[in-house]
């Protein structure tokens, strides 16, 4: 599956706008896999308690995971994961 990386974080992914992950049990597992290869990236997404940071939105498909099961949200193979800054709109 693909994880879309926002402009603001691409300096941590060698400029890549997408990362590929073969499979993951849930979002926490997926972020853990990304974090293994990009530890700074994970730190930007999760706070000291391991929760999604206040100003970060993560979407599984088109849905904000805060409406799903948060980090326990399932990520079926082939799903598109999007990371976006939360401060937009209004």
């Amino acid at each position: 599956m693909k994880v879309k990386i926002p402009t603001q974080l691409r300096q941590l992914t060698d400029g890549n706008s997408e990362l590929a992950v073969e499979s993951a049990t849930d979002l926490r597992d997926l972020l853990g896999q990304i974090g293994a290869s990009h530890p700074d990236l994970q730190e930007r997404l999760l706070d000291e308690n391991g929760e999604i940071r206040r100003f970060v939105n993560i979407y599984v498909g088109e849905e904000d995971v805060r409406f799903l099961d948060g980090l326990e949200t399932k990520v079926p193979d082939g799903t598109l994961i999007s990371i976006l800054p939360a401060v937009a709109g209004g």
Binding site: E62, D64, L84, P85, G89
Partner: peptide, 27 residues
């Protein structure tokens, strides 16, 4: 969809940096 869906679409489009989104990259 609702406004939050619209906002997500605009946030993604704004990532390209080609347009001035008043409530995204010009916020």
């Amino acid at each position: 969809g609702n406004y939050d869906h619209v906002n997500k679409l605009c946030s993604e489009t704004a990532q390209k940096g080609e347009w001035g989104f008043v409530n995204v990259n010009l916020r």
